[in-house]
Design a protein around this nucleic acid. Structure first.
Lengths: 124, 124
DNA sequence: TACACATATAAGACTTGACTTATATAAGTG
DNA sequence: CACTTATATAAGTCAAGTCTTATATGTGTA
């Protein structure tokens, strides 16, 4: 769902306030080089999955963020907060001790490929 | 990415502690009725996207949650927290209070190229 | 009413993704 | 070394997703 960069971008734009479908079609369409129907289809998915809500303004359709579904994602992430807090705590402790012994992890284990890579990977 | 229920489930299992690939193949494979290679392929994706880390234990591969990528998702969701806080306020703060009092700011990765529209304030 | 604008839907081509079975690689065991 | 266990990769199939163009629907306006 939110694995799609177009849909993530749409939500980012909507994070600044509601927007007409046409504006989104322009902005997003230009950004990604896709057509008005393509954007409209993404809007439909976001709408049907509860990520956005729409209201009519004359012939226009104004889209806005509807946080319910996003909160679900947030709630899911809760399960993992322990992990990074733990990790941050460990880091904090290390820093507090004055990070002299910068011990490198030398487990004989083969770290498999794939760098964590800065790329976007948010998503449902 | 995390739109895939198999991958979400794998992470949920790993949230309880590291697990061998084989155990995951059994558990997840049974849960979803898919084969060992299928699970292995999901593990590869999770690994390559930085959601898990692996270490070798003899012939086994022990997978564990690697929170970096998940934190990225969390940071992304930050953009929208303003929306649901606002909405919960509208519904009555009391009910909401218990739910999100533990929330902490981590770090914003927001983009901004907002539309000319006067936006709402986000991400607080 | 007629026409133009704003947006959605339809239908089909093309791409991506998630499986399958078969097999390769690497480590443990006798 | 031969055999088994543990896991990954390869190759192919099929479904799902994402586009495209064409067109329908609904609204504002002369």
């Amino acid at each position: 769902m939110l694995g799609d960069p177009v849909r993530r971008r749409i939500l980012e734009v909507l994070a600044h306030g509601e927007q007409a479908a046409g504006t989104l079609a322009d902005v997003i369409g230009t950004d990604f080089g896709i057509s008005q129907p393509a954007v409209s289809q993404h809007l439909r998915v976001l709408r049907e999955q509860g990520f956005t809500q729409v209201r009519a303004d004359g012939a226009r359709r104004l889209y806005a963020v509807a946080p319910a579904a996003l909160r679900e994602a947030d709630a899911w992430l809760d399960q993992f907060r322990g992990f990074w807090e733990q990790r941050l705590d460990a880091l904090g402790t290390e820093l507090a001790r004055g990070q002299h012994e910068r011990r490198r992890r030398v487990d004989g284990a083969a770290r498999s490929d794939g760098p964590p890579d800065g790329g976007q990977s948010v998503g449902a």
